[in-house]
Design a protein around this nucleic acid. Structure first.
Lengths: 116, 116
DNA sequence: CGGCATCCTTCTGGATACTG
DNA sequence: CAGTATCCAGAAGGATGCCG
């Protein structure tokens, strides 16, 4: 909460949270980012394998959106057959803290669920 | 990434991130949590006002889901007319770090967007 | 390999009106 | 005030097939 605290109204922060979620919205976006993030560089088919349950259609679509939002950079490698590499942009890397917090929370959350 | 780093495979963390997002999914859920979080205790109509654009239907629905997931506690106050107070549970409070990080990132992100 | 196109079903969520 | 009910449009997203 830190420096964003003030007496009357937190609408700015609440809208900011909403803005952030807008970019990260979609069933798979955060998982995709975390896959790329953990490996620094990651190919399409690798991400497809990392993110359990995602279809190639969705992966393609959400990667494109992430690219448009300048969070991810796409590089076509001149292999045979071609492969495409994805990595976080400088800007995308500013999400690293959030990603690792989410991972930590998710791991705890799974314990809570299993514990019941 | 800290202690989650390992040589081969980050599927655990990637799935954990997905699990976390499952709970936080929905167009408004994180905004609702942040509203309650910033004010400690918050009534239905206050949240409705905090979270710009949300309908009472969606607020009701997502609050119910958050309650089921034990992130939020609902208390009916014996006022006239009645009012209902929402607050984070102990468990819900474990999300505070993530929320404040998202707010901070969202504020920066807005600057980036406007800057273009 | 890394997509795009199409079809089709399910889910999301807005508008509006009604209840205790 | 704090919801619930209904109606409905549009978005999300899975399955499958094709293509350079």
């Amino acid at each position: 909460m830190t420096e964003y605290e003030c007496q009357s109204g937190h609408k700015t922060e609440i809208m900011a949270v909403h803005d952030a979620m807008d970019v990260l919205n979609g069933k798979w976006k955060v998982s995709i980012i975390s896959s790329i993030c953990y490996y620094s560089k990651r190919r399409f088919s690798d991400i497809l394998n990392d993110v359990q349950g995602i279809s190639n259609k969705m992966l393609s679509k959400e990667l494109k959106e992430l690219e448009i939002n300048k969070l991810v950079k796409r590089t076509v490698l001149d292999t045979q057959p071609i492969s495409v590499q994805y990595q976080l942009t400088e800007y995308g890397m500013t999400l690293q803290t959030i990603i690792s917090n989410l991972a930590e929370w998710g791991i705890q959350h799974r314990k809570v669920i299993i514990g019941k």
